[in-house]
């Protein structure tokens, strides 16, 4: 359904070019979940935004690659086509922070109705769209949805706001749902509820889910496949079972060695020595080599190719 090949999104900053996404490739089938895992700054959010054609303005630009959804090439479409036919309609995003993702001066009902009206799915009248919006709020299990549709975001709790954000995202039944750390701002108990909800929605609509997170515990629970990102590249991708049982890339091994228990939300990875690289001055060769226990002279000089092992991929000289 979704095929991303060699996607490159660079940020053209005053201090230099930041290769936020630097040759990312993956596939995702309908009804399946792909986890995109990595530290902050590894390019996972930028990958999600690039699929929507929304790299941050004015510095960000998609400089290469292809993204095809149900056979349609998305890279190179003009703004209007993207807004009318792709965003919200075919691909939608559930963003990180429910506290800031809703417009504070419009009712929740109006905000859920907005994509329905924008994409012409609400019939002719504003009332029909409002009615559908209430149904969507019921769909994401907002209690007393009919009354609550008239309330404003500040009258909702964090978990309820995230449900509203989810309702906005799924209102037009997109084929691909991108969830960007949808739970990291929530309490653990609410996290579990929300993940159940997202999985249920996915099952009902048969959408593909791209699940962006740094939380290996949640990823293990919901993802069929997992892709690990480091410094703008996918260093390893495999089925969840394979990845957790037999991680191939030293970075993945490090991540799993420092694995947080479910509910622990440390952002810092303790057992990998060193710090994430300066994205404007990436190390030569393999970007991970200064932190890698297996680094050789070759890793310092030459970037490893991505090697396929069945359906899995890994980019490391140990496996080349």
């Amino acid at each position: 359904m979704l095929r991303v090949q060699d996607l490159k999104t660079h940020l053209f900053l005053k201090r230099g070019v930041l290769k936020a996404v630097d040759g990312v490739s993956f596939e995702l089938a309908a009804g399946k979940t792909l986890g995109l895992i990595g530290e902050s700054g590894s390019g996972k959010t930028m990958t999600g935004l690039s699929l929507l054609g929304l790299p941050p303005k004015p510095a960000g630009r998609i400089v290469g690659g292809t993204v095809s959804l149900d056979g349609r090439e998305l890279i190179g479409l003009d703004e209007k086509t993207l807004a009318d036919e792709v965003r919200g309609r075919q691909i939608a995003m559930i963003s990180q922070d429910p506290m800031t993702s809703l417009n504070p001066v419009f009712t929740v009902g109006a905000q859920v109705a907005a994509p329905i009206r924008a994409h012409g799915l609400g019939g002719d009248s504003r009332r029909d769209a409002a009615h559908l919006a209430v149904e969507e709020l019921q769909h994401v299990r907002v209690p007393a949805a009919r009354q609550r549709a008239r309330d404003y975001p500040h009258q909702f709790s964090g978990g309820m706001r995230q449900r509203v954000v989810a309702a906005m995202a799924i209102a037009c039944r997109p084929r691909l749902l991108i969830a960007d750390e949808p739970t990291s701002a929530l309490d653990v108990t609410i996290q579990v509820q929300l993940m159940d909800l997202i999985e249920r929605i996915q099952a009902e609509t048969d959408a593909g889910l791209l699940f962006i997170t740094h939380d290996l515990g949640i990823a293990a629970r919901v993802c069929h496949r997992i892709a690990v990102m480091y410094a703008g590249r996918i260093v390893e991708a495999a089925t969840a079972e394979q990845l957790y049982a037999e991680p191939r890339h030293p970075y993945t091994q490090g991540l799993l060695a420092s694995v947080p228990r479910l509910g622990r939300r440390d952002k810092r990875l303790i057992s990998i020595p060193g710090n994430p690289p300066d994205p404007l001055a990436l190390p030569s060769g393999c970007a991970f080599h200064p932190r890698c226990p297996h680094a050789t002279e070759r890793c310092r000089v030459e970037a490893p190719p991505t090697v396929m092992a069945g359906d899995d991929q890994v980019a490391c000289w140990l496996h080349a």
Partner: peptide, 26 residues
């Protein structure tokens, strides 16, 4: 530059609505 405008873009609202309605009122 806010998160909710990013969200409004991500669900495909026309830029015209985003600017003159959703952002302007704020």
């Amino acid at each position: 530059d806010s998160d909710y405008v990013r969200m409004e873009r991500a669900i495909g609202l026309p830029e015209r609505w985003i600017v003159w309605r959703y952002a302007l009122r704020n």
